[in-house]
Design a protein around this nucleic acid. Structure first.
Lengths: 191, 191
DNA sequence: CTACTTGTTGAACGACCGTTAAGTGAGCTA
DNA sequence: TAGCTCACTTAACGGTCGTTCAACAAGTAG
């Protein structure tokens, strides 16, 4: 991939993640990169194409990161996945925000791409990890639930200060992951 | 509240929920209601004011609904809350989508309003429900987690068909609530 | 009947949007 | 060196955006 295309995708990802697709103009992206807006149309067909390419760029990179992580932690796969996912969502702002935006606004095609690139593997990992003593159908249900737990847990973190009264917005990713794993494991013992 | 103002808020809520704030113009709302765009500026100071009023309108109504529901089900408060919340998120598209949008893009002030109007009460309910044998701090943590579970569970429902391979997007709200409650209860036995 | 308030319209403002066509210059190739 | 391709710019197009303001009809009070 050319250097300019890479730069455009990275910049677009950062701006789209922060403000949303509609609120970011082609001129905004061009200005940050330091080129003219017309140049974007040399690299991408139109705005929809740039958005699609940006999402593919971000999600494929993150999918690869997860693949590597899972391969390096052959022991407890559920543990490995949850820690990777929580850490990614809490420290990789671009990934997290684009993921949430897609979960809300993505059409069928973009949701499918998201499933393929980042969620397919963790889903399989969890399904296997919770399979013992369950029907395949049940295991899939539980896996879906677990993905939802992580996603939801991180999504409501900004609410924590307002609800608990304490300004604990700086909670550690490892602490959140450990808490979630505890809940999952204790829930795992029964059907 | 005047009839016109009510109509404008309801229409704005539906459009904002569906497409997002930036993608909905003042003209879009005016056209659906059947008035001119200038009329919106008689009832609201500017677009930011309309957005803020729309969110207050939606969330205060839903907060009242929850209050009534909780009062009518004095038995198992955790059960009552989870069923209300899951049903609301799965059947009230406007509420659900505006809530998710705010969780992602809401600034401090709007997040605070959201906490006050809809989330304060359920948070208190859950905290009380899980309090036995826990420190107040722990109970709050668990309550946050439970709210996150519900939010996350519903958010990833559209992914279910793509991941499990089956087209089970039409899952029942009661079934989801029951599954979640089962997981919460089995997790509840340990610290 | 007149004066005043309330709710709404018609028309326009400048700014910004996505997109396109033509042009430019550097570098490669024959 | 002539021709060609690639990466990019300049400049503009029509359209839509949020917003404003004078005008206007309907109702109400004196």
């Amino acid at each position: 991939m050319s250097d300019m295309r890479f730069q455009l995708l990275e910049t677009a990802a950062a701006l789209y993640a922060e403000r949303g697709y509609e609120a970011v103009s082609m001129r905004d992206i061009a200005k940050v990169v330091g080129v003219t807006q017309a140049n974007l149309y040399y690299h991408f067909k139109d705005k929809a194409d740039l958005i699609q390419a940006t999402l593919a760029h971000v999600f494929e990179l993150r999918g690869l990161s997860l693949q590597g992580w899972i391969a390096e932690h052959p022991g407890d796969q559920l543990d490995a996945f949850v820690r990777w996912f929580v850490t990614a969502l809490m420290t990789d702002r671009v990934f997290a925000r684009l993921l949430y935006r897609e979960l809300i606004d993505g059409d069928g095609e973009r949701i499918a791409m998201l499933s393929r690139t980042v969620l397919q593997l963790p889903f399989q990992v969890i399904t296997d990890a919770v399979a013992n003593g369950r029907s395949a159908q049940d295991a899939k249900m539980v896996a879906i639930s677990y993905v939802g737990f992580v996603v939801g847990q991180v999504l409501i973190l900004p609410l924590s200060p307002g609800l608990t009264g304490q300004d604990d917005g700086s909670e550690n990713a490892d602490a959140v992951a450990t808490r979630l794993l505890g809940l999952m494991r204790s829930a795992n013992v029964e059907a």
